[in-house]
């Protein structure tokens, strides 16, 4: 089963849930798709090795042939090319690799080359096979890295995807195609508001989903009411606890210290299997 862990808002405990679930199960593949801020291995502590480099195609300009007409710069929707009266300057980090400049160039001055945009690391620790995607500094388009990470999925395993926060393209790319999505929220008006946005997106993707309420116990009932009225199952509640927060601050998954919680996460997984 492929299970993605997501949240509309950062800081709700997405990585906490992903990691605790991973250490509570057997035969796990954990994919950290939050390629801008890959934090899962702070908790898993596996020895990571780079296994792959991700590339994309960018134009290579033959300045002998180029007559500085400026057609490519005018066409580029991302302002990745500037043409002055003396020189053409290309800014590869802004390029989306759409291929448009090559089409509009009348001098046939554009060829293609590969540019490194990210890396994938792999490590194993206590039965968890962790993959970490990492976007290169200066790159702004994480999608190809996430896409490649997802090709490494071994469907015979319990696959857990730690998705990037927000509700934008990286979130969609990570969650797309999952068998189930767990949305992690906290019982505050902030948490609820961001949960509603995430719910809208996950519904559009037609991925079945449920909710984990983290830092529970403040007496705010609206998240529960919202889930009930929308028919969304709340599958786990993690109480607000100083002990859990302290363990988090040290980079320790709390269920590794508390037997009861390991069982809770096992049960969470079973209830997801039942729901499918």
């Amino acid at each position: 089963m492929i299970l993605s862990i997501a949240s509309g808002k950062g800081g709700t405990g997405k990585t906490t849930v992903a990691v605790n679930l991973a250490i509570s199960l057997e035969d796990v593949q954990l994919l950290d798709c939050d390629v801008e801020e890959p934090n899962a291995n702070i908790f898993v502590k596996a020895d990571l090795k780079r296994i792959e480099t991700i590339y994309r195609e960018v134009p290579d300009f033959d300045l002998e042939k180029c007559n500085l007409c400026g057609a490519c710069a005018d066409f580029c929707a991302y302002n990745a090319i500037a043409v002055t009266s003396k020189k053409l300057i290309f800014f590869p980090e802004l390029c989306h690799s759409c291929g448009g400049c090559g089409l509009v160039c009348r001098e046939n001055a554009i060829r293609w080359r590969r540019k490194e945009i990210g890396e994938i690391y792999r490590g194993c620790k206590d039965g968890i096979e962790i993959y970490q995607g990492k976007l290169k500094v200066g790159e702004s388009i994480p999608i190809p890295v996430i896409r490649r990470m997802k090709e490494l999925i071994d469907r015979s395993k319990n696959v857990i995807i730690d998705s990037p926060p927000g509700a934008g393209c990286p979130f969609i790319e990570s969650v797309k195609g999952s068998d189930f999505c767990l949305l992690v929220t906290e019982p505050t008006p902030f948490g609820l508001y961001d949960l509603k946005i995430a719910v809208e997106v996950v519904r559009k993707l037609k991925v079945p989903f449920g909710v984990v309420v983290n830092k529970d116990g403040g007496g705010y009932k609206e998240v529960d009411l919202f889930c009930r009225s929308e028919g969304i199952p709340i599958l786990l509640r993690i109480p607000h606890s100083e002990e859990i927060a302290r363990l988090y601050s040290l980079g320790v998954p709390f269920s590794s210290q508390k037997r009861r919680w390991k069982e809770e996460f096992e049960r969470l997984f079973e209830s997801i299997e039942d729901l499918r």
Binding site: Y78, N79, A80, A82, L94
Partner: peptide, 14 residues
Amino acid sequence: SMGGAGIKAAQTVI
């Protein structure tokens, strides 16, 4: 522009 505003503005100035 969504991105690269400085690059485009520079060309406007030129």
